[in-house]
């Protein structure tokens, strides 16, 4: 195998893809929250050893909510939307008037639908930029320790190369007090394809 080289130029392109994709996703979240402003950090792109991926979330043993979706089609991406328990409860009660934000069936379905809308907006943007077709799988929700969620996602999605490209963006809202991160893990093959389309090989 040729050593997988991702130079700063390519990381920049990934960041820009993440930026536009997540920007789109955040616009959708804002619409869901009746127009409340959603702030986002500039996406970061990392090339990490597989073993260090779980540590990319602060507090591997901290309980969090993870919404996991695979984008499949011309290329494959794995997307994980991570929220603190408090933020997830705030999100549920913001969208379900009168709810205490419990993780019951309806609460989980709110998180599922938000994950679905965020991911789809992201994939729609990627699709427009790259002309690739990408469809999300129905989202899956887990409430557990961050490390367990992310390692399970790696195993389920078979993202197990020795080095992993990880795109991470954090978002937050002031009024509804929601803080979360969106992690995107493209398959190795996905990157090659995207780079080729964007004329970067």
């Amino acid at each position: 195998m040729e050593e997988r080289k991702i130079d700063s130029n390519r990381l920049d392109v990934l960041k820009e893809l993440a930026n536009i994709g997540v920007g789109n996703a955040i616009t959708s979240l804002s619409q869901l929250l009746s127009g409340e402003k959603v702030d986002m950090d500039v996406p970061a792109a990392f090339l990490l050893p597989l073993q260090d991926v779980p540590a990319s979330l602060e507090g591997e043993e901290t309980a969090v909510v993870g919404v996991y979706i695979e984008g499949k089609g011309d290329v494959n991406l794995t997307i994980l939307f991570v929220l603190s328990l408090e933020s997830a409860a705030n999100l549920i009660s913001a969208l379900l008037p009168g709810s205490a934000g419990d993780f019951d069936e309806m609460g989980i379905s709110v998180l599922t639908e938000v994950g679905n809308i965020l991911t789809a907006s992201y994939l729609n943007a990627i699709s427009i930029m790259t002309n690739l077709q990408l469809l999300p799988t129905p989202p899956e929700v887990a409430v557990d320790m961050a490390g367990a969620i992310i390692s399970t996602v790696l195993a389920e999605a078979r993202v197990i190369d020795d080095e992993i490209v990880l795109l991470k963006t954090s978002l937050n809202t002031r009024q509804t007090r929601i803080e979360g991160s969106i992690l995107i893990l493209p398959d190795a093959g996905a990157l090659e394809k995207i780079f080729r389309i964007l004329g970067l090989t």
Partner: peptide, 23 residues
């Protein structure tokens, strides 16, 4: 011990691994 990782110790000490999900 991280994911896809292992360690061995003798006599004393503690080996810990965090976040076993499907792993």
């Amino acid at each position: 011990v991280k994911i896809a990782d292992m360690a061995v110790l003798k006599d004393n000490g503690l080996i810990i691994t965090v976040g076993l999900g499907s792993c």
